[in-house]
């Protein structure tokens, strides 16, 4: 793998069904680059929306899509699959490690954490408690992953680490169908909750006094976040910082707190940022592709620091 220079003309021709000079170019564009670009748009936009939802629900500017422990859950699923595969022996490891197994394992992992968080949501009255419990789930799963890593062979560990780099390029068209479906459901749920999200900006008690049914609202917001973040993590791996940084960036340019405006705005900024990150990762005319998770952190962390230094306070 690595970079291949394809002329713009050939790109357009392969996208719109014209004659292409080399058949391999068409293949690269339609089977590799196009799904990757769409995955980048969905991953960036979806994670950014999930981050916005969490920041408003927990009224905490440092909340992101993974505060509920979803990515740790996904990591655990994948860790058990890859690192545990050795323990099951050769036959199982070849059976387990096909194209879909990683997706299923990480989806299963985040789904289990989601169920746990939702069960807690129904029992605990305080929203902040949910935040802390989510973080605890995260710590526990990270610890289990660490223990598994300790007992694993080098090549398995490497495979796991490659997954944790995140990748936008491993999604096939059929996978993209499922991913788009998750994205659409999450987006619609978020938009449907925009009025409640606006009320939550005043705090939980004020929201209740204005007729918002808190339990139901909390449930739907967490469900939307889980579907978005869980789905994206399953296909693209854990991608850091986009969900945290993009809502803050967007608030700089859209002078409103209305979620009906912010949700589409954040979706747009997230997609653009992710496409830029992917372009950097896929540095043109070079022989290598950088891990996307590293690029988003390299770009995202300075952005957050810059916002803090300039504004001195992160408002949400």
């Amino acid at each position: 793998m690595g970079s291949v220079a394809i002329p713009l003309e050939a790109v357009l021709q392969s996208l719109f069904g014209g004659e292409v000079e080399k058949e391999s170019w068409r293949f690269i564009i339609t089977e590799y680059r196009l799904p990757k670009a769409i995955t980048a748009i969905i991953a960036g936009g979806g994670l950014a929306i999930a981050g916005l939802l969490m920041q408003t629900l927990f009224r905490n500017p440092l909340a992101g899509p993974f505060v509920l422990g979803l990515s740790s859950g996904a990591s655990l699923g994948v860790a058990i699959l890859i690192l545990g595969a050795g323990a099951f022996g050769g036959y199982f490891s070849t059976l387990l490690l096909n194209e879909w197994s990683l997706v299923i394992a990480s989806a299963f992992g985040s789904f289990l954490v989601l169920l746990a968080v939702l069960a807690v949501t129904f029992r605990v009255k305080d929203t902040m408690a949910i935040l802390i419990i989510g973080l605890m789930f995260g710590s526990v799963t990270s610890a289990v992953v660490a223990v598994l890593s300790y007992f694993s062979k080098a090549e398995q560990l490497q495979q796991y680490i490659f997954w944790s780099f995140g990748s936008l390029g491993d999604v096939s068209w059929s996978g993209l169908g499922i991913l788009s479906f998750c994205f659409l459901i999450g987006l619609l749920l978020a938009l449907y909750q925009s009025k409640s999200l606006n009320a939550l900006l005043l705090g939980e008690n004020y929201a209740k006094s204005m007729g918002i049914r808190m339990k139901r609202t909390t449930f739907v917001i967490i469900l939307a976040t889980s579907i978005l973040a869980g789905g994206i993590t399953a296909f693209a791996g854990p991608i850091a910082f986009v969900g945290l940084a993009v809502p803050h960036l967007t608030r700089q340019y859209f002078n409103t707190s209305n979620h009906l405006v912010l949700i589409p705005a954040v979706l747009l900024s997230g997609s653009i940022l992710m496409l830029v990150c992917d372009t950097v990762a896929q540095w043109p005319f070079h022989e290598f592709t950088l891990p996307i998770n590293a690029i988003t952190s390299l770009i995202g962390a300075p952005v957050v620091i810059w916002l803090l230094v300039r504004k001195r306070k992160l408002l949400f």
């Binding site: 009025k195 008690n205 204005m210």
Partner: peptide, 30 residues
Amino acid sequence: VVLTEAPSSKNLTVMELVSLGRQPYTNWMG
């Protein structure tokens, strides 16, 4: 109600904050 707690988001404009008071009367989009 007017509670002792300040609004969680200080990024709201006064207009937006006061308009939120109309929520019991507005449609699903607010």
